[in-house]
Design a protein around this nucleic acid. Structure first.
Lengths: 132, 132
DNA sequence: GTGATCACTCTCTTTTAGGTAAGTATAAAT
DNA sequence: ATTTATACTTACCTAAAAGAGAGTGATCAC
């Protein structure tokens, strides 16, 4: 490996049917809460409902349930109900969920690395708008 | 910046303030239309308004304008107005936009690679639900 | 018997996203 | 004189997403 051969740019989508399906899947998966839950489960491993709720303080119960359920349906995580009282439900990423979490890692890192650049761009844009 | 050999896995967020900002940025950026426009501009280079509209047939004028404007504000792309009649406006990714496009590349590839797995998971889940 | 715990579900209301359609300015072509 | 083209903006409307808050069922501690 000599002069760094550019990090994979072959993002080509040939088949429009595949592209439509991929776009649809992206639409479901590239969602704020999904990304956050993915990250928490990746980071902390198996968690139960209230643990996740505490880790993401500004998510409503409704959104948490909804997002977890959709992720379960999509095969991102497993939901294990222990028939005890009070109830205990464990959530854990599947291998599929782990790979998605890794795929999003690049976006998290981009966001972290470029926060200031984006802030700066916004300020400049807004200043320009006011000026005109 | 040193060359990065392998996609790193250390997606740790320490500072909660940074995390909040990053989450917010992700929320703005991880949007269906943004991702699609990013990809089109990356693939085809500088494009004008109607060219993009034709490339994304199911986007409305309103959404296209809105998304382009937000992306301009966030520093993803430049908007160049040529004072001619009829008007001509060119859109091109900035280096910042290009890096984001690359970051999303991993997610596109994940989606393409795992479409069937997700489909399968959904079928199984739905079957389970009906059974219960 | 009262209250706490857990993981929800249900209902109601507000907020946001997004679509449709019309209007605008200008000059060149017909 | 009318039409065409471009890149929008504005107003209006509907549907979907999201938030708030109450309720549930079972068991145990007090």
């Amino acid at each position: 490996m000599a002069a760094r051969p550019a990090p994979e740019k072959n993002c080509e989508h040939i088949d429009p049917r595949v592209e439509a399906l991929v776009t649809d899947l992206i639409g479901r998966v590239a969602d704020k809460w999904t990304m956050i839950l993915l990250e928490i489960l990746e980071e902390k491993g198996t968690q139960r409902f209230t643990q996740i709720a505490r880790a993401v303080p500004d998510i409503s119960q409704k959104m948490l349930t909804q997002t977890l359920r959709r992720m379960e349906r999509d095969g991102m995580l497993t939901r294990t109900v222990h028939p005890v009282v009070p109830p205990r439900v464990d959530y854990a990423l599947t291998p599929l969920g782990e790979t998605l979490s890794e795929a999003f890692c690049g976006v998290w890192m981009w966001a972290e690395a470029n926060l200031e650049r984006v802030e700066h761009a916004r300020e400049e844009f807004d200043a320009r708008q006011v000026a005109v």
